[in-house]
Design a protein around this nucleic acid. Structure first.
Length: 771
DNA sequence: AGTGCTGGACTTTTT
DNA sequence: GTCCAGCACT
């Protein structure tokens, strides 16, 4: 049983800890995988070992991840290591796996065969309706607050079903039970489940039907979980149910990288694994293959201050490398200048490619100032995160049509598209229809059908007449019903992409979009095309399997992070949360200030503060060779300027890992030592600041004098002229149209593309044309 | 029915 | 400073 593992061709040798993890195949195994310790490599090698050395059938293995990206990577690596055999392994996110299971056994839980998955936005819509029905003031108790509370309730397997409070409660608590119950009821009525339901209902299925559970236990003999530190209580229950008998559960994670506590993740799952499974073997992967010794040492020092963690010794053979550079800026503008200058310096002086540089921040709002700076300097960048593809309005609209076709009970989708594009079904009609639907306990679409064709309604529903008082309204409803019926026929026969195309054409959506001519409409059209291509891709991947419903699942479960194009050679900006799992040669961490990082709202309990500290650790350990951390002594928060102190995390950095070296900061064409920040007693000392005027010299383009001249009159714009916009920076005028108040310009901005601007509102500043 | 205005909020967001 | 939702206005 202890035959040595022959290495798959081209795979580097395993270190002793990695080897131990790979070869421990029977019984529970916990792998603490420090940052950059070759975790994915170990996971894939372990699965390859199971198949090649232990003769385990691929069908007996399931690997669970949190993100589609992680699942995709694992699938790829396994295909390389195992070839066609890899296809038999069930590699999936938790939520996708549960969806598949629930689709198989939906009838046992009373779910419709074609239940739809509601995302956060749908959830919000539904909650808003629920609050309205319950007459709860949504301004005092916003639905977002209910959403996260309800999510917690639904993710806790111990939670008793919400029942009326025994003791008086206050604030949101007094409504929570009622709202949660009504919300769940509304989900069921819509034939929908939310993300939490996917896990919860699978647990319910297994607990209520032991025979069903038994079949999964029989089949899935080897269970592997990635990023185990991010599992919540329900996921733990799910895993425990599946593995309790054979106990071949291998979990891999890093407690120090648990940063989703606020979403219900429980570090306790990884910290107490060995207590749950006393026979568990525990292995720590301590060798880091990513970062320099300095970076690893400093990051470890920060996270070592946490009390609730597994102590571990990380090491690297990579040598000390460069010191960490600290920079104290006067304000966020200067911080941005520091980053811009630093990026340019890395590239010009050291030949670092833009794609190897990243800027991290705690909050999304921080990105704007950095973006402005980079744009002005002409440095290309991309922001990761932001609006996701499947969250875009037009994409959601189109998907809502298809969801409604697949599941006619889906009121949320119906309300979304019934008057999109406008087809004369207004608020008044809709109000009467929803009232009627509620009274008759019918799905909204049924109400619409009754109103369109009153003979369908029961005789006693005389009040339905009120809903269709206007002949016009009835006509519009009839048209709409006709449209849906027509499209409905397609769903059975046509492929996903064909259905999407048909919906776009026949609903009038394309037509209405064609009437708009601005750049936004253009990008909407592109996004819709993109969605159709996504459907086509999906059809190809699942050769033959072209069910629209399957594509809807795919769309709901794939966050579709705007795929980072490695080839594009641009600087990457993102939140610290988004940085997990990535690595860059050079990392800037901006906004290292008390109140921002750690965030004001996460400083009050030890658990919160420890999570912020882990976040700091995650950010730092993304850097391979260079790490630059900056803070601003004053910063605009909301509308106000506030002064702030350096982050306490900076004080945790060992002095010997930091540099006092000057930061090259380009000023007025010459490279000068602008500033240096030192830590005395762990706290930075103040230094004289560069004045705002001097800082502005760092920008390449200077505004032209605004005195007289044709350039400054409102209609003196010419093609080829350079103008500055407060947000998009400097751009070149491509087209001039209209005059006076309606004077419009098409301006091409290097960082933002062509924008159409109304001169009256754009607040443009003319910039001297380049000679 | 569709546009425009005001008020409030503003941490992170794998699925 | 900016974004969005909800409401008022036309």
């Amino acid at each position: 049983m202890t035959s040595p593992t022959p290495q798959t061709k081209s795979a580097p040798p395993l270190n002793p800890q990695q080897r131990a993890a790979v070869e421990h195949t029977e019984g529970p195994l916990l792998v603490f995988a420090g940052a950059g310790s070759g975790k994915t490599f170990v996971i894939t090698q372990r699965i390859a070992h199971l198949v090649h050395q232990r003769g385990v059938a691929p069908q007996q293995i399931i690997a669970l991840t949190f993100t589609n990206k992680a699942a995709g990577e694992m699938r790829e690596r396994l295909a390389a290591a195992l070839g066609p055999l890899a296809r038999g392994i069930w590699i999936s996110t938790f939520h996708a796996a549960c969806t598949r299971i629930l689709r198989r056994h939906h009838e046992l839980l009373g779910l419709p065969q074609r239940f739809v998955i509601y995302d956060a936005a749908d959830q919000k819509h539904l909650l808003k309706q629920v609050l309205r029905d319950l007459k709860i003031d949504a301004t005092r108790f916003p639905e977002a607050a209910f959403a996260s509370r309800i999510s917690r309730l639904k993710s806790d397997p111990q939670a008793p079903p919400p029942e009326p409070a025994a003791k008086p409660r206050f604030g949101i608590e007094q409504h929570l039970a009622a709202v949660a119950a009504a919300y769940d009821e509304a989900l069921r009525a819509n034939g929908a489940v939310d993300f939490d339901d996917l896990l919860r209902l699978t647990v319910e299925l297994w607990e209520s039907y032991p025979a069903v559970l038994e079949t999964y236990r029989e089949t899935l003999r080897y269970v592997l979980v990635d990023e185990y530190q991010d599992t919540n209580a329900m996921q733990w229950r799910l895993l425990d149910l599946l593995c309790r008998t054979h106990q071949n559960l291998c979990v891999v994670g890093d407690d120090d990288q648990s940063i989703y506590r606020w979403r219900g993740a429980d570090v306790g799952n990884i910290l107490e694994f060995a207590r749950h499974y006393p026979k568990a073997r525990v292995i720590t992967l301590g060798e880091n293959y990513r970062s320099s010794e300095t970076i690893l040492h400093a990051a470890s020092a920060v996270v070592a201050r946490n009390r609730r963690r597994q102590p571990k010794e990380l090491f690297t053979g990579r040598g000390p490398g460069e010191k960490i550079i600290l920079f104290e800026a006067y304000d966020e503008e200067e911080e941005a200048s520091f980053i811009t200058a630093g990026v340019r310096h890395r590239r010009e002086a050291e030949g670092t490619d833009y794609r190897d540089i990243a800027v991290f921040f705690r909050t999304n709002a921080q990105s704007r100032v950095v973006e402005d700076g980079l744009r002005r300097a002409g440095i290309p960048y991309q922001v990761v995160g932001g609006l996701k593809f499947y969250d875009r309005k037009e994409v959601k609209d189109l998907l809502a049509y298809v969801r409604l076709l697949v599941n006619p009970r889906d009121d949320v989708s119906l309300l979304r598209i019934i008057n999109v594009p406008p087809r004369g079904i207004g608020a008044a009609t809709l109000q009467r229809l929803t009232d009627y639907a509620k009274r008759a306990r019918l799905p909204l679409l049924e109400a619409v059908r009754h109103a369109a064709h009153p003979h369908l309604a029961r005789a006693e529903d005389a009040d339905l007449g009120a809903a269709v008082a206007g002949k016009a309204a009835r006509g519009h409803l009839q048209q709409f019903v006709l449209l849906l019926d027509e499209l409905g026929k397609m769903v059975a026969e046509a492929s996903a992409s064909e259905t999407l195309t048909a919906v776009l054409r026949r609903s009038g959506y394309l037509e209405s979009l064609a009437k708009e001519e601005d750049a936004q409409a253009e990008s909407r059209r592109e996004n819709l095309n993109e969605l159709i291509s996504a459907a086509q891709d999906f059809e190809q991947e699942n050769d033959g399997e072209v069910d629209v419903a399957a594509f809807l699942d795919h769309a709901a479960l794939v966050a579709h992070q705007d795929v980072m194009s490695d080839a594009s050679g641009v600087v990457t900006l993102m939140t610290l949360h988004a940085s997990k799992g990535l690595e860059f040669d050079t990392v800037f961490m901006a906004g290292m200030e008390e109140g921002l990082f750690p965030h004001e709202r996460s400083r009050h309990t030890t658990a919160e503060l420890e999570e912020e500290r882990r976040l700091c650790y995650v950010g730092m350990t993304r850097a391979k060779n260079r790490l630059l951390m900056s803070w601003a002594t004053t910063r605009r928060v909301g509308g106000q300027r506030r002064s702030s102190l350096p982050s306490q995390f900076l004080a945790d950095l060992p002095q010997e890992d930091l540099t006092e070296a000057a930061v090259p900061h380009r000023l007025g064409g010459q490279t000068a030592a602008l500033d240096r920040a030192t830590l005395a007693d762990g706290m930075p000392r103040r230094k004289p600041r560069a004045s705002r005027e001097r800082r502005e010299l760092a920008y390449e383009v200077e505004p032209a004098a605004q005195s007289g001249g044709e350039a400054s009159t409102s209609d003196g714009y010419r093609r080829g002229m350079r103008v500055r916009h407060a947000i998009f920076g400097v751009g070149v005028v491509r087209e001039v149209s209209g005059s006076g108040d309606t004077l419009k310009l098409s301006v091409e901005f290097p960082g933002a593309g062509v924008k159409k601007l109304m001169v009256k509102y754009a607040g443009l500043e003319v910039v001297e044309p380049r000679r």
